[in-house]
């Protein structure tokens, strides 16, 4: 099917697909974070609105998860350097 497109259109479609894939990866991450952070932050029965602490917990949860990931990478690198030295 794609063989019937001219080179310029093919290029355009490639770019389009890359964007859509990036978008899909982003959405996958948000699903994953929402899953984790919901369990961590929403402990009571759901009410008609979030409490202030639930809302800030959700926001902080993403940030701290990413910090945790960076922290671990840094630690592992440190340990590897120590072993080499």
């Amino acid at each position: 099917m794609s063989e019937s497109f001219d080179p310029a259109t093919k290029k355009e479609l490639e770019t389009f697909l890359e964007q859509q894939q990036a978008h899909a990866r982003f959405n996958q991450s948000v699903h994953h974070f929402t899953d984790m952070c919901w369990d961590k932050c929403i402990t009571g029965t759901p009410s008609t609105r979030f409490s202030r602490s639930e809302e800030s917990c959700l926001t902080n949860c993403v940030e701290r998860f990413l910090d945790t990931s960076l922290f671990m990478v840094r630690k592992i690198e440190e340990q590897r350097e120590q072993r080499i030295a």
Partner: peptide
């Protein structure tokens, strides 16, 4: 359901 979708939204913005 409402809260879960709101949580999805908050996390999407934060990310």
């Amino acid at each position: 359901m409402e809260r879960y979708m709101q949580a999805f939204d908050i996390i999407s913005k934060s990310y």
